[in-house]
Design a protein around this nucleic acid. Structure first.
Length: 571
RNA sequence: CCCCUCGUAGCUUAAUGGAUAAAGCAGGACUCUUCUAAGGUCUUGAUGGGGGUUCGAUUCCCUCCGAGGGGACCA
């Protein structure tokens, strides 16, 4: 059908052309070639007929296949799979094997600086399951940018300023005590936070009390400043010692920056904006009108004289571009704040703070089992530590009791496996989904270690590693010996790795990479089940298979690490 | 009322405008004297409704229905 249609088109463009639509080895090849011709034509600004002719030429002369494939591969990698001939695959496998440690890496970032803002805990509120998404997505995204040759700053923008701190200080002054704060800062602060909001219902005066305390804080009130510093110190310590390590995030690589760091720059910023008539008074507050962008005005200063998140974020943006020379800034922040970033980016454009590409990498919320938002105010949250603990317990149970009865796994190793597998499950469960969709928090799904899950990938890696461990001195082998369909499938899949990574930065999502790794694991497991490697009498073939396994294992490990998931040799 | 996001199988999800819409879970049938059964094999089942653009639409446009989020002194 399509074939005939293309023929007609070619007749129309080139009445004298002798080109016939490719003579394909089977029916589907024809349609497929047509698609390709169109993709190539679009890409190269040529006509489908020209591209088709070139394709046909390549296909009819097998010796040039690799070149044609490589050209197509550059334009439309997924398509090539269909055509791949064994010879090509074999050539590629050797290539991949030889450069397996750098396979997938590239220099397309060219040393450009990318700031990835993620995690950004608010130390007036406890970290809960909702904060996890930003941390997991941001950390992985930063890894991927790094692998592609960008200079990455992992910007952890601590929420340590704002009205809520006034609330917290007010609550502390009413109900808090020193010892609780010292012993378990997060729990204590959380309890104060919840109590404040609960009592607010009966006692609306509390709100003005909180505002009052924040105003004092902004006016350098000594007592409040001291209390604030104490709260901040303790919270950061707990974050660094407890929270981040427990989810496998390297604290040392995070660039901590607090909202409060911009406090002393705000006055100048505001004054300048007012002086240049960019900001104006409205109902006692200072705003920037954004009507021409179809947006509500951005608030710079409240009528009580205090500043807002927006004000600080604007100052921070300036800082990031001027002092950190960011070429690109990614804000890994939930969907809910879309408007905030639309406003921020619009103002940046107005002020010509446009030295960097600004992207709001948004993601959906974690919803409760009722499908409603998990709100901190009623204390209706799943604390991060609970999730981490529960998932590790489950992993530990499996390691310990389900099998491996005859394996010498020490207690320490079992603990370590449980930790890595638990976190792997948690992270993969998040990353495999498109970030926009809301996630309904579901213990069962999160604790499911079978099927398309983190542990499945880790398990696959461990199986492959187990084979490799049993062999010494293997040679490269001869790729021509790999003729099983399962082997071909794996080889084809390996080729897609670089594309899977590059797509991550193109779209600023990671589910493509997660899916790729799953499919690679799938293919690898099928290969594993269908072909016995070590018992092979044909040593050359055995070595070739080991080469394949080595390449897969390396790619799998690198991919998992990019996602922030550990690949263990034994699980 | 306005803006943003989403709507795919019983459930949770996937698919730069391109191949027979892809998986997992749940259900059914198999598979461990064999390199780790957290595995593998087979099986049932889906694009909210209506228009449009296109050779081709889950994807882009319009409209309706439904869900969630946001909309000047929170972040």
């Amino acid at each position: 059908m399509i074939k005939r249609w293309l023929k007609d088109k070619i007749q129309e463009y080139y009445p004298d052309s002798e080109f016939d639509v490719l003579t394909p080895p089977d029916d589907k090849m024809g349609d497929y070639s047509v698609n390709l011709a169109f993709v190539l034509a679009k890409k190269n600004g040529t006509s489908p007929a020209e591209e088709g002719e070139e394709l046909a030429a390549g296909l009819s002369k097998d010796k040039d296949l690799a070149d044609v494939f490589e050209k197509i591969e550059a334009v439309k990698p997924g398509f090539v799979n269909f055509f791949l001939k064994k010879e090509f695959l074999q050539k590629q496998l050797v290539k991949i094997y030889k450069k397996r440690d750098s396979f997938g890496k590239s220099k397309i970032g060219n040393g450009k600086t990318v700031i990835v803002e993620y995690s950004s805990p608010n130390i007036a509120k406890p970290m809960h399951i909702g904060h996890l998404r930003s941390t997991i997505i941001g950390d992985a995204l930063a890894n991927v940018y790094e692998a592609l040759g960008y200079k990455v700053i992992r910007w952890n923008y601590i929420g340590d300023w704002g009205t809520q701190f006034g609330n917290l200080i007010a609550a502390y002054k009413l109900w808090g005590n020193k010892d609780d704060l010292k012993n378990s800062p997060f729990t204590t602060l959380f309890n104060l936070y919840v109590r404040f909001h609960n009592e607010l219902k009966n006692n609306p005066d509390l709100e003005s009390r909180g505002r009052e305390e924040f105003k004092k804080l902004e006016n350098d009130d000594k007592e409040n400043l001291k209390l604030w510093e104490r709260i901040k110190d303790l919270s950061l310590k707990e974050l660094g010692i407890l929270v981040y390590p427990s989810i496998g995030v390297d604290v040392k690589r995070l660039h901590f920056k607090g909202e409060s760091d911009y406090q002393n720059k705000l006055k100048l910023l505001i004054d300048n904006l007012a002086k240049n008539n960019i900001a104006k008074e409205s109902e006692g507050a200072l705003i920037i009108d954004l009507e021409k962008y179809g947006l509500p005005p951005a608030l710079l200063r409240k009528s009580d004289g205090t500043t807002l998140y927006f004000t600080r974020d604007l100052a921070s943006l300036e800082d990031r571009i001027q002092n950190y020379h960011a070429n690109k800034i990614l804000y890994v922040v939930a969907n809910q704040q879309t408007l905030h970033f639309e406003q921020l980016f619009a103002v940046a454009k107005d002020l010509k703070i446009d030295g960097a590409e600004l992207v709001h990498v948004k993601f959906g919320m974690v919803l409760g089992e009722d499908g409603k938002k998990l709100a901190t105010r009623e204390g209706k949250v799943v604390p991060l530590q609970d999730v981490v603990n529960k998932i590790q317990e489950k992993a530990y149970g499996i390691v310990k009791h389900v099998k491996f009865a005859n394996k010498d796994i020490s207690e320490d190793e079992a603990q370590n496996i449980a930790r890595a597998v638990g976190i792997g499950a948690l992270k993969y469960n998040d990353l495999k989904q498109h970030p926009y969709s809301d996630i309904v928090f579901d213990w069962d799904a999160m604790l499911d270690f079978s099927g398309n899950s983190g542990p499945y990938l880790q398990y696959t890696y461990a199986r492959l590693a187990n084979i490799l461990e049993k062999v010494e001195n293997q040679k490269e082998g001869n790729a021509a010996l790999l003729v099983e369909p399962e082997e071909e499938k794996v080889m084809k899949r390996l080729l897609e790795f670089p594309e899977a990574i590059e797509k991550c930065v193109e779209l600023n999502t990671l589910n493509g990479l997660a899916l790729y790794l799953y499919e690679l694991s799938n293919d690898a497991n099928r290969f594993y089940e269908s072909v016995r490697v070590l018992d092979d009498d044909n040593i050359e073939r055995r070595d070739t298979r080991l080469t394949l396994i080595q390449a897969v294992a390396t790619v799998l490990k690198r991919g998992l690490n990019l996602l922030g998931i550990e690949a263990l040799e034994r699980i």
